[in-house]
Computed example of a mutant assay.
Amino acid sequence: MKKLIFSVVSVVFSLVALGQQENLSNSTKPVHSEEPPVDGYVKKTDIENRKVIPYSAIRQTDIAYSKRVWREIDLREKMNKAFTSPKSRLIDIIISAVMSGELTAYDPTPTANDPNGDSFRNVLPADQVMARFGGDSVLVEEFNENNEVVSSRYESRTFSGDNVIKFRIKEDWIFDKQRSVFEPRIIGIAPLITPQIPGMDSNAGILPAAGGTTGGSGDPFDPFAVQQDQTSEETPVEQIAAPAPVQDQNAFVPAVDPTPAFWIYFPEARHILVNKEVVNRNNDATGLSYDDVFIKRMFASYIVKESNPEDLRIKDYIGDGVDRLYESERIKKSLMDYEQDLWSY
């Protein structure tokens, strides 16, 4: 019996020693391994091996209250900076999963069977996903010494997620009377893009610079542009003293709101996000995944729409941007007040 116990203990210690030798950072002598060394002293396997924790089952008869809201997450806010980290950018994770077939992208275009475009009815093919971000290829032309095109070819365009600065999420706030829990559950998530409309002036709404020009330097090929090589002796006094023209603040400036590029079904995306670590500014050992961030509501957002009989967005009945934020906070407070009014203290 003692021999058997000694053999088992010896095997265990041998396996432990063998496991430590595979990590070059823990070795006491140079070891040549076919695999690259571990980037650090431990290998983070807790995120890679995680599984999605399912939601609690809810019966329709147990739902005493339900409210659907649409939110927007602005990645330029300080609390949402983790979504834009080059080490683990959210849009890169989603695009990679869609292109590899792990996630299904849904077309946000309103149709007869999907009036709002966010009901996950129409599948968007993977080859059309990159087209929503400006195309997956670019035409490259070669010129000769006479500035003539001699050849042209298409090259793959590298996707950059820097242009995606907002996400829209659709969620339901549900009160389960069986469990006495009032909780939100995200249904879908969509990256927002700003459409590029041909013919729209990109400098619309920008005040001209001093001297009446919109740019800092004159165009040498424009005979009517003010050149920068003019000296003070050649410039009339009246032209120097004349104030710069100011654009009318009430003038109409065309504005295009960001629109969803595609929709992702969040319960499906959880199986991808649960294995993607979120970069923390203060601690590298937090062990938080993107699934944890969304489930624990560790992001800043504002409401852009709530379910209503007229199917109106906040911007459809409120024009001022500040008043829209006040309306968003009012809707948030109404959700919190519903839960607080359920209990007596």
Results as ranks from 00 to 15, higher is better:
Asp292Lys: 05
Asp291Ile: 03
Val253Gln: 04
Asn250Ala: 07
Val279Ala: 11
Gln247Trp: 00
Ile318Ala: 02
Pro254Ser: 09
Gln340Tyr: 00
Tyr265Leu: 00
Asn250Ser: 07
Asp291Tyr: 05
Ser301Gly: 05
Glu329Ser: 15
Gly212Arg: 01
Pro243Phe: 06
Thr235Gln: 00
Val322Phe: 12
Ala225His: 04
Tyr265Met: 00
Asp284Met: 14
Asn283Phe: 01
Met298Gly: 11
Leu325Asn: 06
Glu327Lys: 10
Ser289Asn: 06
Ala209Pro: 10
Trp263Arg: 00
Pro309Ala: 04
Glu306Phe: 15
Ser307Arg: 13
Glu238Pro: 14
Ile295Gln: 14
Gly319Ser: 06
Glu310Met: 12
Phe252Ile: 11
Glu233Arg: 00
Val304Ala: 06
Glu329Leu: 13
Arg281Cys: 08
Glu233Thr: 01
Asp337Ala: 12
Asp320Ile: 09
Gly215Val: 11
Phe221Thr: 06
Val246Asn: 12
Phe266Gly: 02
Thr231Asn: 02
Gln340Ile: 10
Tyr290Arg: 04
Glu329Tyr: 10
Val274Gly: 04
Glu234Tyr: 12
Leu325Phe: 15
Arg297Thr: 11
Ala269Trp: 12
Pro220Ala: 01
Gln239Ala: 03
Tyr290Pro: 08
Gln230Val: 15
Ile331Gln: 06
Glu310Asn: 09
Glu234Gln: 11
Val256Glu: 05
Arg324Gln: 14
Ile295Ala: 07
Glu329Cys: 09
Ile318Cys: 02
Leu207Tyr: 14
Arg313Leu: 05
Val304Ser: 04
His271Tyr: 15
Asp257Gln: 14
Tyr317Pro: 09
Gly321Ile: 06
Ile303Phe: 05
Leu325Val: 14
Tyr338Glu: 04
Ser232Cys: 12
Ala210Asn: 04
Ser307Pro: 12
Ala209Arg: 14
Ala244Gln: 13
Gln227Ser: 06
Ser289Val: 05
Glu268Leu: 00
Arg313Glu: 03
Gly212Phe: 00
Asn283Ser: 03
Leu312Thr: 06
Asp291Leu: 06
Gly215Arg: 13
Asp222Val: 00
Asn282Phe: 03
Met298Ala: 08
Lys305Tyr: 05
Glu306Trp: 15
Pro254Leu: 15
Ile272Leu: 05
Val278Gln: 11
Gln249Thr: 09
Gly215Gln: 12
Tyr326Phe: 08
Pro223His: 04
Pro309Trp: 13
Lys305Val: 07
Arg330Ile: 06
Ile240Met: 03
Ala251Val: 09
Pro223Ala: 07
Gln340Met: 14
Ala209Val: 14
Ser217Val: 09
Glu310Asp: 10
Asp316Met: 07
Val304Thr: 13
Lys296Ala: 15
Lys315Phe: 07
Glu327Pro: 10
Ala210Val: 08
Glu310Ser: 08
Pro236Ser: 05
